[in-house]
C-alpha cells in the first residue's frame, strides 16, 4: 500500500484485456515502482549469494583461525567484517547465512502452497459439510500459538534446517488456505464458471483451468509476504538458540549469540541484524510491488 502511495499508482488500466497483456501490464507497473525494483534487487542479490555462496564467500563458513578470534572489522586484512567468537570470517558466515534464510523462506512457502491451495480450493469449491469441517479446522489452527508449538516441536525432534522448516510449516499454510477458499468462493459464482459447468466440464478441470489461475494472483502476493515471515520465524527460533545446527550459519543465531558479546564486540550484532532487516525489507517491497502491479484495485 505504501508503495502504491509512493508512486502515486492508482491508474489501473481497464481490466479484462487479454491474458498476455495483463502480465505485460503488470510487469510494466511493477518496474515503474521504484521501491519494488529496489526490493527485487535486494532479493536477487540474496538469492545470488545463497546459490553461489561457495564462490562468493572468501572463506568456508566453518573455517576456524585460532589466532583470529573476535577481531573487529578491518582489524585484519581479508576479514572486512571481522571474525566471530570461534575465529571464523564474519563476512563469509553472513553470506552463507543468506543460504539458510532463503532455503527456509522458500521451502516453508512451498509447503504452505502445497497444503493451503488444495485445502482451500476443496473447501471453497465443494462447500457444504466439507467446507464446514475445513473451515473449523482452519479456525482452530489460527488460535494455535504457532511460535510455542514450533519450540515444542523442535524440543521433541531436535533442531536442524529440515525440522525448522517442518515446525514453521505447521501454521504457515493457514493464511493461504483461507485466502484460496475465499477466492474460489467468489469466483465460482462468476458467469464463465457457470457456463463451463453448464457445458459439462469436469470439476477437476473447472478448478484447475478456470478457478485456480484466477485465484492465483492474491496467492502469489500472499507467498511473497510469506517468505519474509518464514525468514523471520527461522531467525526467531535460531535467536532463541533452538533453530539451525552449528556450524551452519543463520542470521538469527548470529544475532542471538551476539547478545553475550555486544558490550565489546559490537560488530557481531550489527551485521546480521542489517542482513535480516534488508532481507525482510526486500521481500516486503517485492510483495507490495507485486500486489499493486497484479491487482491494482485489491485493497489489503
Amino acid at each position: 500500500m505504501t508503495a502504491r502511495v509512493a508512486t502515486g499508482l492508482d491508474l489501473a488500466p481497464t481490466n479484462g484485456e487479454r491474458h498476455r497483456t495483463l502480465w505485460q501490464d503488470a510487469a510494466r507497473r511493477f518496474l515503474r515502482n521504484r521501491l519494488a525494483v529496489i526490493g527485487l534487487a535486494i532479493v536477487l542479490l540474496f538469492l545470488f549469494l545463497a546459490v553461489f555462496a561457495d564462490l562468493v564467500a572468501p572463506f568456508p563458513y566453518d573455517k576456524v583461525y585460532f589466532d583470529r578470534v573476535l577481531r573487529f572489522p578491518f582489524e585484519l586484512p581479508g576479514h572486512p567484517l571481522g571474525t566471530d567468537e570461534v575465529g571464523r570470517d564474519y563476512l563469509s558466515r553472513l553470506i552463507y547465512g543468506a543460504r539458510t534464510s532463503m532455503t527456509v523462506g522458500v521451502a516453508v512457502q512451498m509447503v504452505a502452497f502445497l497444503i493451503g491451495v488444495p485445502l482451500g480450493s476443496l473447501a471453497g469449491y465443494v462447500g457444504g459439510r466439507t467446507d464446514f469441517i475445513i473451515s473449523r479446522f482452519i479456525d482452530t489452527m489460527t488460535a494455535f500459538p504457532g511460535l510455542m508449538f514450533s519450540i515444542l516441536i523442535i524440543s521433541v525432534w531436535g533442531g536442524g534446517i529440515t525440522k525448522v522448516i517442518f515446525a514453521l510449516s505447521i501454521t504457515s499454510w493457514i493464511g493461504i488456505a483461507r485466502l484460496t477458499r475465499g477466492q474460489i468462493l467468489s469466483l465460482r459464482e462468476k458467469e464463465y464458471v457457470e457456463a463451463a459447468r453448464c457445458t459439462g466440464v469436469s470439476q477437476n478441470r473447472i478448478i484447475l483451468r478456470h478457478l485456480l489461475p484466477n485465484a492465483l494472483t492474491p496467492i502469489l502476493v500472499s507467498i511473497s509476504f510469506g517468505i519474509p515471515a518464514a525468514i523471520f520465524g527461522e531467525a526467531g527460533l535460531s535467536f532463541l538458540g533452538i533453530g539451525i545446527n552449528d556450524p551452519i550459519p543463520s542470521w538469527g543465531k548470529m544475532v542471538g549469540v551476539s547478545n553475550a558479546y555486544v558490550r565489546v564486540y559490537w560488530h557481531l550484532a550489527l551485521f546480521p541484524t542489517i542482513a535480516v532487516a534488508l532481507a525482510m525489507l526486500g521481500f516486503s517491497f517485492v510483495g507490495d510491488g507485486l500486489r499493486d502491479a497484479l491487482a491494482p484495485k485489491m485493497i489489503e
Binding site: 570461534v86 552449528d246 556450524p247
Partner: peptide, 20 residues
Amino acid sequence: QAVAASITECLNINLEISNV
C-alpha cells in the same frame, strides 16, 4: 565449534553440531 573445526580440518571429515 572450535573443537569440531579442529577435528574436521585435521581429519578431513564432516561434523555437524546439534545443540539440544
